[in-house]
Computed example of a mutant assay.
Amino acid sequence: LYNILKDNKIDILHTHSSKTGVLGRVIGTFAKVPRVIHTSHGYPFNNYQKLVIYGCYFFIERFAGMFCDKMVTVNSEDADFANKKLKIPKNKVAYIPNGATPLEVEPNRDSLASKSEITIGSMSRFWQQKNMIKSVEAAIEACKVDSRLKFVFVGDGEDLSICQKMVNDSNLQAKISFPGWSSDRDRWLKSFDVFILFSLWEGLPLGILEAMAHGLPIIASDIKGNRELVNSANGYLVSPNDIDGLKNILIKLFDNKADLISKGKESLKKVRDEYSMNKFNKNYKNLYRELTK
């Protein structure tokens, strides 16, 4: 990487992710790249790690922060953390949220009013971060209370077999399905009436943004990133450890379809007003111009 940067006389090095972000920032500085930018899509440390692991990642990130001209975060809480905890000066921190492209033809979510069943869907990897086991547990409990609910959990991962067994043991295969991994996000998002993401930690989840761009109301865990996108106007927030709280939201959905329609429209409006790809691209263009003056 050092030789590539030197030989090609790179003007701006922009890094992403954790390992490559650390290596790229340090090597870029020693290769005397004029400007080095790093975008953090969520820090590599979180409250679910052992303290020693958290501490190691924290100090590595703090060290790497010394080797960039601009630290970009995708949510405002991480921007504040970068300044106050990682000790990166405010003038070197930029907040640029992710973006999404709304559908060209606005979905007819008003049709939800006449449906006899509500489909709550998710597209996610089945692993610790996404908290899928608790999502499925809440779905099982909700289906026992209201048979008008249907759940579709799209994705795969190490926790998928556990979730499938939970549903099989509850004899709810007709109400809770696992289609597996799919790259056809549009197809699935168009088939959902509500989108759910019950993660333990996030940066700024593209899954929620894409669901909002499809005009869906959102149920999400009350964590940083999620709460930047979701509020009472376009969805529901609940603690990622509160399965009963999630179940109570789910069992009230069918009898509040008018509210869901309103929340879905607000989701679409929020993407258009605040999180469009045009705005995302403009923010990065302005950042590059600022650094190359």
Rank of each mutant, 00 (worst) to 15 (best):
C56E: 05
Y57K: 07
F58Y: 12
I60W: 02
G65P: 07
G65M: 05
M66V: 01
M66G: 03
D69E: 07
D69M: 06
M71V: 02
M71S: 06
T73E: 09
T73L: 06
V74A: 07
V74T: 09
V74M: 10
N75P: 12
N75V: 14
N75F: 05
E77G: 11
A79T: 01
D80S: 11
F81V: 03
F81C: 12
F81P: 00
A82I: 01
A82D: 07
N83S: 13
N83G: 06
K84M: 02
K85E: 11
L86A: 02
I88F: 03
I88V: 11
P89L: 09
K90H: 14
N91E: 13
V93R: 03
V93G: 11
A94Q: 12
A94N: 08
Y95K: 04
I96H: 06
I96M: 12
P97W: 06
P97E: 10
N98P: 09
N98Y: 13
G99I: 12
A100Y: 02
T101M: 14
P102S: 09
P102K: 04
E104V: 15
V105H: 04
V105Y: 12
E106I: 08
E106M: 11
P107E: 02
P107Q: 07
S111T: 10
S111P: 00
S114G: 15
S114R: 10
K115D: 09
S116P: 04
S116F: 07
S116H: 12
I118H: 06
I120D: 05
I120N: 02
G121N: 07
G121V: 03
F126A: 06
F126C: 08
Q129G: 14
Q129M: 15
Q129C: 08
N131R: 04
N131Q: 01
M132C: 13
M132S: 01
M132Y: 02
I133E: 11
I133T: 14
I133A: 12
K134M: 03
S135C: 10
V136A: 04
E137P: 01
A138Y: 05
A138G: 10
A139F: 11
I140C: 06
I140E: 03
E141V: 11
C143I: 09
K144V: 01
K144C: 03
K144D: 01
V145W: 00
V145K: 13
D146F: 05
R148L: 09
K150N: 15
K150F: 00
V154N: 04
G155Y: 04
E158R: 14
E158T: 08
C163M: 05
